[in-house]
């Protein structure tokens, strides 16, 4: 069985190799800080395997995370000057390779889809080929590896250090933003443990007007969106808002359609995800990957759609779910 942990180790190993390269990169004015940050991230990725299955204490990992926060947050990371091709060379290379360049790029999604749809159903000797519940992650990882092989073959690139170096310069230009999605997941968990959800539910119950259907629907949807903006994740908002408004008021008191209210309510939460920096993997990571000056660029592009869709979702529940 191919386990997801193997891929986390592989990602950790990639971070460690890149960190070792960074430590020796004299074009990077902050090479020691960068190497420390990415090296620590690599170690944390591997060590996490034992934290996840409960066989190692989580406290040292917590300390490592706080150290990474300080390294990234106080500006100890930087980037070197990549040894790469310039625009003129790239245009010439593009003319030489032509559309063959798309083959490896399209291999990643293709393999990912094949893994999650087909390979996920395979099993050898009663044991699934891919670890249960990790098909998507494994598909992405296997897809990236196969695509790398295909890419090196198509582009007749023999040296593995070339893609590693190219990947490292992408990593350096993204910087610490890469760590942010994981940290926000941590914050969401701490909010939950500390009882932020219960408080928000209590406040929502207090402002709930009695017996007005439109107001109750709007409160449920807006509540989902606002709570998602705070937590960065509609999944965290759903149980709280459903317990506070959705179930007792919209379903029990006003007799709505359970499937309609719940499904569309969740989508109202997604409107919040579109506009919150807390959902870093959807909003801030793309900004970093696309090397935008304004890290809120994607949020600004999505905000009007999010507002309109919130209105649509309220209308859909109000008109069709009762």
């Amino acid at each position: 069985m191919i386990r997801s942990e193997w891929f986390f180790w592989l990602v950790g190993a990639v971070f460690l190799i890149m960190a070792a390269q960074m430590a020796g990169d004299r074009t990077n004015p902050k090479r020691h800080g960068s190497a420390a940050f990415w090296g620590l991230l690599g170690v944390a990725f591997v060590y996490s395997s034992w934290v996840a299955d409960g066989s190692a204490p989580a406290e040292p990992l917590g300390v490592a995370v706080l150290v990474m926060i300080c390294l990234g947050g106080f500006g100890f990371t930087g980037k070197g000057v990549p040894r790469t091709t310039d625009d003129r060379e790239r245009t010439e290379l593009a003319a030489r390779w032509g559309n063959r360049l798309f083959v490896p790029a399209l291999t990643i999604p293709l393999v990912a889809v094949v893994c999650s749809v087909l390979v996920a159903k395979w099993s050898i000797g009663g044991e699934p080929v891919l670890e249960d519940g990790s098909e998507t992650i494994l598909g992405l990882g296997i897809g990236a590896l196969i695509a790398l092989g295909v890419g090196m073959w198509v582009l007749r690139e023999r040296s593995p250090s070339v893609p590693v170096h190219a990947g490292r310069s992408l990593l350096e230009s993204m910087g610490w933003a890469l760590l942010l999605p994981q940290l926000l997941a941590v914050l969401g968990a701490i909010f939950q443990t500390a009882g932020v959800g219960t408080q928000v539910g209590r406040i929502t119950e207090e402002v709930l007007p009695d017996g007005q259907r439109l107001a109750a629907v709007a409160l449920y949807c807006v509540g989902m969106a606002v709570f998602t903006i705070i937590m960065g994740n509609a999944f965290a908002a759903f149980p709280v808002m459903t317990a506070a408004v959705g179930w007792p008021v919209l379903l029990v008191q006003m007799d709505g359609s359970p499937a309609g209210v719940m499904a569309v309510g969740m989508l109202a939460g997604f409107c919040g995800t579109l506009v919150t920096p807390m959902a870093a993997n959807f909003n801030l990571v793309p900004a970093a990957l696309l090397e935008l000056k304004d890290q809120y660029g994607p949020i600004k592009a999505q905000a009007p759609t999010a507002a309109a869709m919130l209105g649509c979702n309220i209308a859909i529940i109000y008109f069709f779910a009762f």
Binding site: R96, L101, A144, G151, Q182
Partner: peptide, 21 residues
């Protein structure tokens, strides 16, 4: 939450393709 960072594994192949145009 490590799964949200696993996309980093695609960076070498993307970088290789980008330097080839």
């Amino acid at each position: 939450s490590r799964s949200v960072t696993i996309f980093a594994i695609t960076l070498p192949v993307i970088g290789l393709l980008e330097r080839n145009g």
